[in-house]
Nucleic acid binder design. Structure first.
Lengths: 348, 348
DNA sequence: CGAGATCTTGCATACGTCTGCAAAAACGAC
DNA sequence: GTCGTTTTTGCAGACGTATGCAAGATCTCG
């Protein structure tokens, strides 16, 4: 129950004014070596640390980033969360978590709460924030950055991988592998990510004057994706390859194909995913997948956040390309080899 | 760049004092119906919402819970995080994330930062917070609750599953299944969770006058656990069953056994895990495992947090039992059946 | 050594809200 | 209508820090 130490107490002990103490803890303020020394010593002795909340009231900077996220089932998001948090922590910021519901009313409420906490910026991940809400935040002076999702509104910032190119890359790879009946179980078509990958995929096939035998919406949901896969393989023209909109669904698709449809992957059906989460490298799945460059995306996201907070009014739209990681879940084109194993650090 | 609306502006519009506005937004304060109406209307019109930070300065309650977490690779933790956050959100609290490093110095720094933000309570998960640090927080009047980890210090609160009983339950199940050379790849022995499961397991074997052929520390790490499994199976007295300290490592163990040692699970070696994360139900693993009652643990954690914040000085030590979920990764005892499939909601 | 320039320092105020206190208003009972 | 009781209201002062301003201290250079 020790009362919290204030700058005034430190000032008293050090024999200086409260302002002096404040200046010692404010980078770039004018203090002499001598008083700084005295103050630091007194602060050390009392265990003083500035109160972030009080500081926030004056400066208008809470050093809190609001993260809006819908679900953490897909391993990609906890991983991103961890790296984002770590990176922001190094810069003196922290993440306040807001779980969004699926309905619009709940999302509006979440935005209200975000504003209540005076967050310095809002980061959205795996969640559809309606444009008017995002715009409302920007209007309130709070920058919004969408991670792994595009926003229509040109005033909003976003960091994604190059999903169009990624989708095309997968199409080319499957065609080169000799597949001729290729289906796509897409990410939710309400998300730019899902749409772009599908579109790029379609364009890649079109280049070879092919088209997908089917495109179904997997809604980023394991059960839906599995059902779609089973529906596909009972058709008379069973696909010989399925491109799945993300790894999370791809695992469900592989499970359904192997354990329910009793098909072999890749001998009967090739499967390709998207994201390259660590689990994709596990031998039980050994999934060929288009990697999203997570570290680069996180770095870019933090850079954009910092820039916007520092007052850069320009919205940024950043798109980072990722390589196709070739493993064993899809038949290989002639002369192609597996990608080298990842560094041990990424394996966990 | 719309300036933030303050209670004073609302007061001016409503023709009342700032105090009146404050009281309208403070549950339990004395306001007449009439002025409440006027104020609400004015607030609505201006889009006013109270500033949580300013409020925190007065009341000493930030409505922020600091969550200290070390890693999110193990699916159990993101899931817990999501549920904890959702539950706290309903009560008007939010989670501020702090990623702990592995070294003690970094952890001390994290604690400093926690105090800077005036968090109302600290929640630790999957992280070893040295007792003096935790005690320091308690001394500063900030309750600390450990999720899924026991604390030696009797003054600290904790919520865990009954790991002793769980370990014993696994031992009994494997013995009943006719296994006679049983090994244990344990969770990190620096954690109570890892120790208790190992101890319960050992006690369960001892009851039948058996003892484990080996106990190795998997350190909650996939690579370490896989290596341990491979070391075990090259022995002349190859184990016929391995109890793994959590699901996260158990998946690695199964992968190593199947794809590196070329053994069949469960025909050659039975594998049992601990946690029952959703992935354990995926057919690729179909893991028999001791379930941790996540929902109950989350509910208990939130209850303890609220109680401690409300001033209940008593520390709570809560231990919740979980059932063994019988699937296909371990040979079944005579007459035993698989556990019924989980509800679809838990499947994702 | 002196005058001007530069650096430090303390004072006072502001940030947006809550809350104890006392005055004012409303209420109730006779 | 009066008086005592309860409710409602505004005032003013906190919470802990940052910062403009002016005065004081220190430095620089001739």
């Amino acid at each position: 129950m020790a009362e919290r130490i204030t700058s005034a107490q430190v000032a008293a002990l050090a024999g200086v004014s409260q302002s002096a103490v404040s200046r010692v803890f404010t980078p770039g303020a004018s203090v002499s070596k001598k008083t700084a020394e005295k103050v630091r010593h007194a602060a050390e002795q009392l265990g003083y640390r500035p109160n972030v909340l009080a500081r926030a009231m004056i400066t208008g900077r809470s050093r809190i980033i609001g993260l809006v996220v819908a679900y953490l089932e897909n391993q990609f998001y906890p991983l991103a969360l961890a790296r984002l948090s770590r990176s922001l922590q190094e810069r003196g910021y922290h993440i306040l978590v807001f779980l969004a519901g699926n309905d619009a009313a709940k999302t509006a409420q979440v935005v209200d709460e975000l504003l209540d906490y005076q967050v310095d910026a809002i980061l959205t991940a795996s969640v559809a924030m309606s444009n008017d809400l995002a715009t409302r935040c920007e209007a309130a002076g709070i920058p919004v950055v969408a991670f792994n999702r595009g926003q229509d509104d040109p005033r909003l910032s976003e960091v994604t991988s190059d999903n169009l190119a990624g989708g095309r890359q997968v199409a080319e790879f499957l065609l080169a592998g000799g597949h001729r009946r290729i289906a796509h179980i897409a990410g939710w078509q309400g998300s730019s990510t899902g749409r772009d990958r599908a579109e790029g995929f379609r364009a890649g096939l079109a280049q070879a004057e092919q088209e997908p035998v089917a495109i179904m919406d997997g809604l980023y949901d394991r059960a839906v994706a599995a059902k779609a896969a089973l529906d596909l393989v009972v058709r008379p023209d069973r696909p010989d390859a399925i491109f799945v909109g993300n790894d999370h669904m791809a695992f469900a698709v592989m499970d359904a194909l192997r354990f329910q449809a009793m098909l072999r992957v890749p001998e009967d059906v090739s499967v390709v995913g998207y994201d390259d989460v660590p689990m994709a490298a596990w031998p039980a799945y050994d999934l060929t997948t288009n990697r999203q460059p997570l570290d680069a995306m996180v770095a870019a996201t933090v850079d954009v956040l910092m820039a916007r907070i520092e007052g850069d009014a320009q919205p940024h739209k950043i798109r980072l390309a990722g390589p196709l990681i070739i493993r064993g879940s899809a038949r290989l084109p002639q002369g192609t080899q597996r990608s080298p194993a990842p560094s041990p650090t990424g394996e966990t």
